[in-house]
Design a binder for these strands. Sequence first.
RNA 1: GCCGCGUUCGUCUAGCCCGGUCAGGACGCCAGGUUUUCAUCCUGGAAAUCAUGGGUUCGAAUCCCAUACGCGGUACCA
Length: 509
Amino acid sequence: MNKIRTRFAPSPTGYLHVGGLRTALYAYLFAKKNSGDFLLKIEDTDRKRFVEGAVEKLINSLDFLGLERNEGVMLSKVLSNNANSQESKNYPGVFEVGEYGPYIQSEKLEIYKKYADGLVKNGYAYYCFCEPERLEEMRKEQTAKKQPPIYDRFCLQNVSEEEINKNLKNNCPYTIRIKVPQDETIEVDDVIRGRVKFNTNLVTDQILLKSDGFPTYHLASVIDDHDMQTTHVIRGEEWLPSMPIHILLYRYFGWEAPKFAHLPLLLNPDKSKLSKRQGDVAVEDYIKKGYLKEAIINFVAMLGWNPGKGETQEIFTLDELVEKFDLAHVHKAGAVFDIKKLDWINSQWIKKLSIEELYEKSLEFFKEKEFYKNTSAEKKSDEYIKKVLSIEQDRLQNLSEVGESNQFFFHDANFDKELLRWKDMSDDDLKKSLEKSLNVLENITDENWTRENLEKILMESAGENRGELLWPLRATLTGEKKSPSPFECAWVLGKEETSSRLKNTIGKI
RNA sequence: GCCGCGUUCGUCUAGCCCGGUCAGGACGCCAGGUUUUCAUCCUGGAAAUCAUGGGUUCGAAUCCCAUACGCGGUACCA
């Protein structure tokens, strides 16, 4: 059996879309699961949509997420030990690695042209000189008459060989269209959907080569997948309707068609195709918001796929996904992108982080916060930040929330006498309670100032009515209705700061 | 309009191929426990007449047909 080969084939429109990520991920998982190759090619045949720097961004995102490629477009040739590597002509700094290139469509223009001409020569395709205006007019009429919207073959039936040659000689703009056979049913077995049937009378003679000399997706993708020896075409459901065109092209070229797997769509909460209007769609936006790549991959993998049977595990590493993945358990229906579940998965991944890792990933988010910018050098120390993080770790849904609800760690706590009061205790009792805390805490040595000790000692001192001692203490240290426990807060703040906050408050009562 | 795909708790889904569990899990929600508050953690609960209507069958979420609804495609975009 041939080695499994899958590919991710994005258009460089600016960023990696989460839907694109899911497609890339499934292609990656399927290839890796089956000890196959995963490659990246670039579909940049639409010059109107080209965005500067998009190719580099796409590659960076995939690299960052850890979706390694064996072949195709890469940012550094060091990434591969394949000697067959060269810098792209159209994208300086971008390399094409592997022996089945070019992996960038804009660099294969002559190849596509050659194949398109070959189809014409063999009678499988024909020149079309129709102008866009006529085509639009035709479509309008068809819709009005409730007819299927297919090209009327004007140029196939009414333009003589002679005229064609004359037009070509005069540099008349032309396109090349595929000639779809009549009265045939094309059947394809989609890996995910099973048998799908199409009546060729309802399939239009799609344009293969545009008048600007660029191929359309249909021509380019078929040639690429053949050239690159793709065994499984894994792509979004939006391509399902054009399958007959692709099947026909494989037949016309005399090539064996790969297997097709059309993935269900990612949906907005209103069930329409996931779009920018209803939230973020770029992977980088989620990273900026403080979602971990592990969580994003984990979440996106579960949208439309599950390990099946009795398996209830929900948290998976990339390697675990590789191990468990199979196309058979990909769902057929679209999946709503539910941010609440992403939040939960992210919180699970944050909990798994070591303090070192959490610190490294959180620092950039701290640096953007006003409370951090304005705090003392001591409180910016890695030691202090790590203490704060060790307490926040269980409370974070995403990294950008870091420090946000515990700002008292970075500046003085608010003074609110009514907040300090436990139930309806008197000023006098309140003062006594705080003095007791102060006394207890001042007797703890620096070495003993640990989370465990503080909890143990304060709990012991509090006795039966814990709230009487602990609530005023906590409210003093934090100035907030909600916060981590007084033990944790005192531990982070340190003995000196804890004492001074207590003294300060006592003085105000 | 035409073509294609889809339809199990609010959401992600198991189960469907090989008919026979009060249709299972997770997120979210609610309640309780742990707890000075918050979060974590633990326990419990509400939540799907399996889109609808017909068949087939002793028996259907599971097989068949129809309908409805949703989405996608209908471009010299991918």
